[in-house]
């Protein structure tokens, strides 16, 4: 219940924040993932860099053909933003299913992404949306594709001197739609994902012109299910086509057993939820 002692830094600017980052430091935005670990002393950084007071990072912005979400945008804002709901339903839904009311009021979308929990919801959504992640450091900004951002359990592509200052993804064009669905650990959609799937599709002339599908919860990291998209593209999006594509849900994914599912069950769930998410995305596609 009491974290180990640490140094606390609350920089007023990103430059100050970069200066405070070191080998044994940790960036905190909402703290919803970090503080419980610190309280249980499962993780004890020497320095906590609280970016919560840096101005300019809390906006959801419409930049014409893209939407950007700043580092301090909270889950509740992501979930209720009309802009995100209209253009990136997968992310709005995933944010609405993250934690509970209180967690959504403090935790941030980017914080959840940087934390890279294997069973978190929003990572799947940003992969499916083809988002770009902005990894900023004193030496500049790296743009990382969401599909390359999640490296392993609790490990992202961020270097220790970098901060995820925001993400950006394309707005929904004609015929495009996305969705997220999951089985939660408490059943229904409650709690972390036993298996969660985000799907993005682009329809054109009665067939699927493009698609991206990402799976979370079942393996070591949220993963792009490339085989599913491949099978979907060019198909008519019929239930049969979706079901057939869903069979490829775990291609290339190392499925792990845990308290909530065997390898067999989680593999099965991935397929079920790929089908559900793709169908919902097709329904959402204008």
């Amino acid at each position: 219940m009491y974290p180990r002692e640490f140094d606390y830094v609350a920089p007023a600017s990103l430059d100050e924040a970069f200066g405070a980052l070191g080998d044994d430091s940790k960036v905190m935005s909402g703290g919803m993932s970090l503080l419980p670990l610190m309280k249980m002393r499962l993780f004890s950084p020497a320095t906590v860099v609280d970016i919560g007071r840096i101005p300019g990072l809390d906006a959801i912005e419409d930049s014409g053909d893209h939407i950007s979400v700043g580092a301090l945008v909270r889950h509740a804002d992501t979930a209720t933003s009309d802009l995100i709901k209209a253009n990136a339903a997968a992310l709005a839904t995933a944010a609405s299913l993250t934690g509970d009311v209180q967690v959504r009021n403090r935790g941030t979308t980017c914080g959840s992404l940087a934390h890279a929990d294997v069973a978190a919801d929003q990572p799947a959504a940003v992969i499916a949306l083809g988002a770009t992640m902005f990894a900023q450091s004193a030496s500049g900004t790296r743009e990382i594709a969401a599909s390359d951002f999640f490296v392993d359990a609790m490990t992202s592509a961020l270097r220790s001197d970098e901060i995820l200052t925001g993400i950006r993804f394309p707005k929904a064009g004609p015929g495009e739609g996305s969705a997220y669905d999951k089985l939660g650990r408490r059943g229904g959609r409650s709690d972390y994902a036993v298996a969660g799937v985000a799907a993005w599709v682009k329809k054109s002339n009665g067939s699927i012109e493009d698609a991206r599908v990402a799976v979370t919860g079942v393996g070591t990291k949220p993963t792009l299910a490339a085989g599913v998209a491949e099978a979907l593209i060019g198909s008519d999006g019929s239930d049969a086509a979706v079901k057939s594509a869903a069979e490829k849900a775990i291609d290339g994914i190392t499925v792990l057993e845990d308290l909530y599912g065997s390898v067999e069950y989680k593999s099965h769930l991935a397929k079920v939820y790929v089908a559900r998410a793709v169908k919902a995305a097709l329904a959402n596609a204008g």
Partner: peptide, 8 residues
């Protein structure tokens, strides 16, 4: 509403 145990 927030959880005051999960904030410094």
């Amino acid at each position: 509403p927030v959880k005051s145990c999960s904030m410094l």
